[in-house]
């Protein structure tokens, strides 16, 4: 942890992922500093989610390398990266639909703290349960603790999705379109939640909603057709002609 404070938290070089003929991510380089809030923007199919999957270990790159907290993790699976302190949400919610909200969060807590194979109840269990309830409170789900995740409304599912990523107190958080499908007021709550995150946490965020993205982010990476086309501050991005072209669907770069 201390060693990583100087170098980048995430360092990606030459990262490429092909699906048959499609180059979803092509030769991407990325450096994220500790505590940074970074947004990744780009039109549909730009390769943002694929990039996240590669960083989180849900997918393996065709080429390139990934360094997390100063260690090469290119060959490690999602499980090991999570235990190193990486958490992520999915673009379409992936919840444990047959379990209650509390059990979802509880499992997320012991996923990194250990005791995953325990067949007896112990003191550590109570700690994890408390952690689960605290997180439920911070994402505003206290009154839904006993509800099955599969029975939640869409908005609540998105909240739980973020909750699952937060319970484990990650050092790095990847959020894939957390605001998708949320109402205006829900978006505002989400923005407030993201702004209130501890500064120790590094945040990488995919978001189509410019209001959310540009409010939260300090730097923005713009992707198109699998490659990074611009990187800069929100102000620079707002002023960039290429970004406007892409988001208004005019021409290619």
């Amino acid at each position: 942890m201390t060693g990583a404070a100087t170098g980048p938290v995430l360092r990606v070089r030459g990262l490429t992922r092909r699906f048959g003929g499609v180059v979803a991510v092509g030769d991407v380089a990325l450096d994220i500093a500790p505590g940074e809030r970074r947004a990744v923007l780009g039109p549909n199919g730009a390769g943002k989610s694929t990039l996240f999957n590669l960083v989180a270990g849900a997918d393996t790159p065709t080429a390139g390398s990934i360094e997390l907290f100063g260690a090469d993790v290119t060959r490690l699976g999602a499980r090991q990266r999570t235990r190193m302190g990486l958490s992520r949400t999915f673009q379409t919610s992936r919840l444990l639909t047959g379990l209650t909200v509390e059990d979802n969060l509880y499992l997320a807590a012991i996923g990194v703290s250990g005791g995953r194979l325990r067949l007896l109840r112990t003191g550590r269990d109570r700690t994890a349960r408390e952690q689960a309830r605290r997180t439920a409170e911070s994402v505003g789900m206290t009154d839904r603790l006993a509800t099955l995740a599969g029975d939640l409304s869409h908005g609540e599912q998105r909240q739980l999705e973020i909750g699952l990523a937060l319970v484990a107190e990650p050092r790095m958080l990847l959020l894939d379109e957390p605001a998708a499908g949320l109402s205006r007021s829900e978006r505002q709550l989400l923005t407030a939640l993201l702004l209130s995150l501890d500064r120790d946490v590094t945040l990488l965020l995919i978001e189509h909603d410019m209001d959310v993205a540009l409010t939260v982010a300090e730097r923005v990476t713009m992707m198109h057709d699998g490659v990074v086309i611009v990187e800069g501050t929100p102000t620079e991005i707002r002023a960039d002609q290429r970004v406007h072209d892409l988001y208004l669907g005019k021409a290619h770069v």
């Binding site: 999570t82 235990r83 999915f90 996923g111 699952l164």
Partner: peptide, 10 residues
Amino acid sequence: DDPVRMAALG
């Protein structure tokens, strides 16, 4: 329910 999610949870 979801093996991919479980792997992501560690």
